[in-house]
Amino acid sequence: MGDDFKWPYFFNYPPYFTLQPVKDTRDKQIQLWKELILKYCKHNKIFFIHLEDDIPLFFNASIDRKLTYEARQLFVGALVSEGRAEWMDKAHRKCLVHWRKVQDWAEVILQFARDNGMEDGVMTIDEIRLGDETRGTDLAGIDKVVLIRALKLLEQRGKVAMFKGKSEDDEGVKFSAQL
């Protein structure tokens, strides 16, 4: 994963790994990192990041620079304040990155259902995430938490009805006849 990811110019420029003391420069730095985090997660379909892990996003071996924990928290925190990410714990160690907004996911689901004639059809959560039908589409590999939120949004709009089966595996949705 991520072999063909095109790292931006600043990822190879050492000072971008140190929090800049001058405000204007720091603002620019935060902006660039926010964009990179979203882009990287989108490219690799990463939904959760653990700030303590030295994932390639935080660590550039070729120039031997690593983002400090403080910097990671600041950059991700900036995404959180814009609603593009969400802390999953109080200590701010783990976060969910919304590289695609929940309402946009809802649209993707709707479009998939329309394209595949799913009107009045039924799919389980796991089928959407891991099944053959969605293989090769954007929906393949979608995180469960995100998927359920998007489906709930569609449920509010009357596009799907969610149901619970006997076991958790049977959880699923029924698409409306009118998509």
Partner: peptide
Amino acid sequence: LKEGLAMVDDG
């Protein structure tokens, strides 16, 4: 630094 011509690197 203040003029934005330089950046620090402590890494």
